[in-house]
Computed example of a mutant assay.
Amino acid sequence: MSLLEARHTRPLEGGASFSLGNRLTRLAWGAAWLLLCRFTPPPLHGWRRLVLRLFGAQLGPGSRVHGSARIWLPSNLELGAQALIGPGARIYNQGRISVGARTVISQRAYLCASSHDLADPHFQLVLRPITIGAGCWVAAEAFVGPGVIMHDRAVLGARGVLLGDAEADGVYSGNPAVRIKQRVMRAG
């Protein structure tokens, strides 16, 4: 495990939260993304998939990640077939983030899969994975918090803040997000 014990490393005093190996991997990843992907034209999704896979991401066929997206650690990312990470999205995946098939993470959305133990005087980092099901939509500038599960076809509206689980086919909005209606799909 690359997560370190805060009581030993004292991150509040400048110590590390992750192992040296993890930090070096992220340094190499950041340089690779910046040099090889960050400024690539939008249609080069295949190239960006290749680079992400080289750093351990699990990507389904046809998944797409825009060059302006920021991913903390590709090996903690799983995207289903035809999933999309939009322009400027932030995938803060210290903990694992799994995104289902045909799910859209819109522009500048933020997914955060970690928090801190508020009762710990050393402020221990806690990894809390996020699972987003198939056919979901996280709209522009929305925030999905640590440990959240969005069940299939759930929607989080623009700038919504989802801190608890979202039911299948539920549409959520607000800060904190609440369920406002049922998503009804037309026959297609």
Rank of each mutant, 00 (worst) to 15 (best):
I180A: 00
V178F: 08
E141A: 13
W47K: 11
G46C: 04
R10N: 09
T9A: 01
G56P: 07
A89C: 04
H151P: 01
R7H: 08
G170K: 09
L34Y: 12
I91T: 04
R23A: 13
P121D: 06
F18L: 11
C112D: 12
A101P: 13
G67A: 06
G67K: 06
H8L: 15
G14R: 07
G30F: 15
A109N: 00
T131N: 10
L27Y: 13
R53S: 12
M185G: 07
G160R: 06
E13N: 08
L4Q: 09
L118P: 04
S17Y: 08
E167K: 10
P121H: 05
S114L: 14
T131S: 13
G86C: 00
G30L: 11
P61W: 01
L84K: 12
L162Y: 01
L163K: 14
P11W: 05
W47R: 12
L84P: 02
A134I: 05
E13C: 07
R49E: 04
G170I: 11
L54T: 03
D120T: 11
S173M: 13
V144I: 10
H8N: 15
G86M: 00
T25G: 05
L59T: 10
F55H: 08
L36G: 08
L35I: 07
A139G: 06
D117L: 08
V184S: 12
V104L: 14
D120Y: 05
G67D: 03
S2R: 08
Q124Y: 10
G157F: 03
P11I: 05
A101H: 14
G88K: 02
A187E: 07
G62L: 01
L77D: 14
W47H: 14
P176H: 06
G170W: 05
A139C: 13
A89N: 00
L73T: 04
S2L: 01
Y172N: 13
R159D: 09
A154G: 03
A142K: 05
G21N: 14
R128K: 15
W33Y: 11
S68R: 08
V178W: 08
V178T: 15
A166L: 06
W72E: 15
P121E: 09
G15E: 03
Q107Y: 00
G30A: 14
I91K: 00
P129T: 12
F55E: 10
L162D: 04
P11S: 04
G15Q: 06
G86K: 00
G147S: 09
G170D: 12
L50G: 04
N175H: 10
E141D: 15
L12R: 12
L4N: 04
H116W: 09
I105S: 05
G100H: 07
M1K: 06
R153Q: 03
V171P: 03
G157Y: 02
R102E: 15
H116I: 07
A177Q: 04
G80N: 02
H151C: 06
S98G: 03
F55W: 08
V178K: 15
G170F: 06
A57K: 02
R64C: 13
C112W: 09
N93S: 14
I180H: 03
F18A: 13
L111V: 08
G188S: 13
E13Y: 10
G147F: 11
G30M: 13
S106M: 04
H66M: 10
A158D: 09
A168S: 15
G100M: 04
L156G: 02
V138M: 00
T9P: 00
